[in-house]
Structure formats: C-alpha cells, structure tokens
Design a protein around this nucleic acid. Structure first.
Lengths: 123, 123
DNA sequence: CCGAATCCTGTTTGATACTG
DNA sequence: CAGTATCAAACAGGATTCGG
C-alpha cells in the first residue's frame, strides 16, 4: 500500500471523498452531466433542495473546478451552470456508484428486512 | 432516461447514495476490504473516529448486508468484522472513486487556489 | 431571475462514564 | 475487549427576508 492513505485526516484524498459524501453535490453533478441548467431550472429538478443549499453547493463545486458558472447580461440576468471537463470525469465515476445502487438495492433491502426480523444470518 | 430517478426522494437509489455519502461508512468499507478486523483494531486504523460512531456505523453497515459481524466466545469476547460478498462489490466500486481522487486531487487544488485568488477562469 | 444575509431548529457528533 | 448511555456542543439545513 504505497498510495496516499485516506484514513489520515490530512490526506487530500479525504477532501475528495468528503465532496462526494455531500448528498446535494452528487445530485447536482449527475444533473449537470445530463444538461446545462440555470439556477431555478436546477432547483426545480432537484426536489426538496433549498435555494440556500443549492447556491452553497454550486459555489463549492465551482471552487473545486467541477462546475462552470456563466453569467449572461440579459435582463433579468441569466446564469448557466454546466460541468467542466474535470467535473465530467467525476460524474462518470459517480455514475458507476448509481449503477451499483440500482443493481443491488434489492439485496440491501432484503438484508435490512432480515436484520430487522432479528435474524442476522448473512453471506 | 427510463431508470429510477435518484432525484426523487422516494427512490431507493437515494438510500444507497446516502450510505456512500457517509464518511465513516466509506472508510470502514475500504478498511475491511483490505482485511478482517476486530473492533478496536478498526478503531485504531481510522484515527479520530469515536467508538460511538464506529459502533453505530458498523451496525448500519451490518443491517445493509455489507458487513458481517462474528462473535467468538473467548474471554474476553472477540468480535471480528469483515465484508460480505455484497460489501466487496461495493468496496470495488468505491475504490474507483478513490482512484479518481488520487489522480485529480491536484487539479482540484489548483482550481481552488485560482478561485480563492479571485479569478474564476475555468475550462 | 439569481442569489446573499439572517435567524432559528433538529440532527449529528464528540466526551465522558459505565456495563457484560 | 466490545460495546451502551447520557449530555452538551457543533453543525447542517430550512424559512424568511432583502438586494442586484
């Protein structure tokens, strides 16, 4: 194991892991991978997100170089969000996770039912 | 787009996404993918985790059928944690994320520095 | 339309102490 | 060794309001 160790809190890999750990960030990433969107359009697609969290998360994604923010001097102003190339590569990786989720969700739910019934047999 | 939509809060895919979103859960997954470990051994490897969070996270991972818990009637009692087959497949997928992190962390940090300097040029 | 600022609440987490 | 219980602190998140 000569790679940087994510268990060390100082490890930069941890930063990325934390970013992915952010529920809204992942959803926004997936959304913007599909299409460029304006603020309120994005907000309508991700139900239940507050404008505070949306703007906050977008800002941090922009800071990380994952999202590009473009302002157009229309009246009223138009702001478009899209993924950068860097963001697209991350979105692809995250996509693998959602695929895992879709194909294994049943197994997980079955395990939960078994656990909740009190029997903890597992394989 | 005919697959279940993770943006709907009711979608089960969201559950898995949330699980992955858990910082400790991911770290434990990676650790146990490397080797079977006992409670305190695990705790020592993941610095800064409280025993409360460790036990809590392990319990939920066990419930999801990702982690197997085995108790041995020694004195004092021995408890070993390992990944189930299901857990291993998830760990493999998560591994892809850590690989992304390692190879792109520099680009991210560079973007952050640029952003913090005030220039938001991006590509 | 696109946000920032403020306030306020509930969940998460950490410290500490205790049990089988 | 492997946890549970309890309490306080910290933080994330929502609602609301206001401004460019």
């Amino acid at each position: 194991m000569q790679r940087p160790d994510p268990f060390n809190a100082q490890c930069p890999t941890r930063q990325v892991l934390d970013r992915i750990g952010d529920k809204w960030a992942v959803l926004i990433l997936i959304m913007l991978d599909r299409e460029t969107l304006r603020f309120n359009a994005l907000r309508r697609r991700i139900e239940n997100i507050s404008q505070k969290m949306l703007s906050q998360t977008l800002k941090s994604l922009e800071r990380d170089g994952l999202v590009r923010r473009e302002v157009f001097a229309t009246v009223p102003v138009t702001v478009e969000y899209s993924l950068t190339e860097l963001g697209r590569t991350l979105a692809k990786t995250v996509e693998a996770l959602t695929l895992w989720a879709e194909s294994h969700i049943e197994a997980v739910q079955e395990a939960q039912r078994r656990y909740d019934r009190g029997g903890h047999e597992m394989n």
